[in-house]
Design a binder for these strands. Structure first.
Lengths: 178, 178
DNA sequence: TGGTGCATGTAACCTGTTACATGATTCG
DNA sequence: CGAATCATGTAACAGGTTACATGCACCA
């Protein structure tokens, strides 16, 4: 019962704006995907659990059994509690970094090739996030403000990653003579 | 059956140097913990699966049932295959970034307080990694070289994170008047 | 009326965590 | 001999992915 980040992600999106599971799913596919991705299956299950726990409630049932959800006061309290108590976050894991860690076990040419791919990937991710930022609304509400802040973090990560990868490639090249 | 990063982490550590599950566990707790953490329970299970799959083999059984493992040729091939084909990596997830994304749903004072904690956390992590780097051996072998490269990545991330957090705090302060 | 999109749900499976469980060896 | 450490394992559960399954509503 630790962590529960998906639970919070769904709760938080509903706090920003009410909607159905289907609506939420769209928002997960766009903005939230870069921060905490979730599948359709998982999301619908979580919404039912949130409703059972009284953190959200169904305000309306529309066509095709569409359930309109809204956060409750208890839900807002839980959200505040989670945001201000960053105790039980899941540990950092990176398959990309694991690869780097093990790069010594493959031929140097393969290692270099991998790092080149990392550079290109970081650069293309950077472009993708730049485009995303340009298409974003210029709203001055809180959600848009912090959304842009999270996006800025992603941009800085990719810039750093590309720079680091180029630095490592140079170091590999200087080592090869040995 | 996708991803399998723990499987590779264990295989890779054994490729760097043979040893028992217990030996491996120690290496997971120290160096590998920063890249791909694993629990004792998970590791022993994975070692048996790797042996069943013929990617590693038991070369010796010592006191207390200690099993000495070593990678096989098939294991080395699998390692090379995984490193050079970064297709099925698990998606990026960050509880910290999720918090930032949802910071608009809590009072501004709480949001600011959280970002201050982020700054401090990044700075202390940076110090921890600096200390780790200083205690590391100066070996010039491949494993040490790429281990330091991964560590450098962590250092740059923390530096970037601290800088970004300070930038965001400034932006929050400039927004408060509204 | 037929296709696309809306809308939700279930089942099987894999990964990862926590807790429990057991016993041998070494050293003071 | 008792404590710490070496050494491996199992069981229960939570979180996440994939695939399957179903049906309504809207619009051309």
């Amino acid at each position: 019962m630790l962590s529960m980040s998906l639970r919070i992600a769904a709760l938080g999106l509903l706090a920003q704006q009410p909607g159905s599971g289907y609506d939420l799913l769209k928002r997960f596919e766009t903005s939230m995907a870069n921060v905490w991705p979730a599948t359709q299956s998982q999301l619908y299950g979580e919404l039912n659990k949130l409703a059972d726990a009284g953190l959200i409630e169904v305000t309306d049932v529309g066509p095709r059994g569409r359930k309109e959800y809204r956060v409750t006061d208890a839900g807002r309290a839980e959200l505040l509690r989670w945001v201000t108590k960053p105790q039980d976050d899941p540990q950092f894991r990176s398959a990309g970094l694991l690869r780097v860690f093990l790069l010594g076990e493959v031929p140097a040419t393969e290692a270099r090739k991998y790092m080149e791919a990392v550079t290109e990937d970081a650069e293309s991710e950077q472009r993708r996030l730049q485009e995303l930022r340009d298409t974003l609304c210029r709203d001055d509400n809180d959600a848009a403000f912090y959304g842009r802040a999270a996006l800025e973090y992603g941009l800085r990560i990719q810039a750093m990653k590309a720079e680091w990868a180029r630095w490592l490639i140079k170091a590999i090249d200087e080592r090869i003579p040995k």
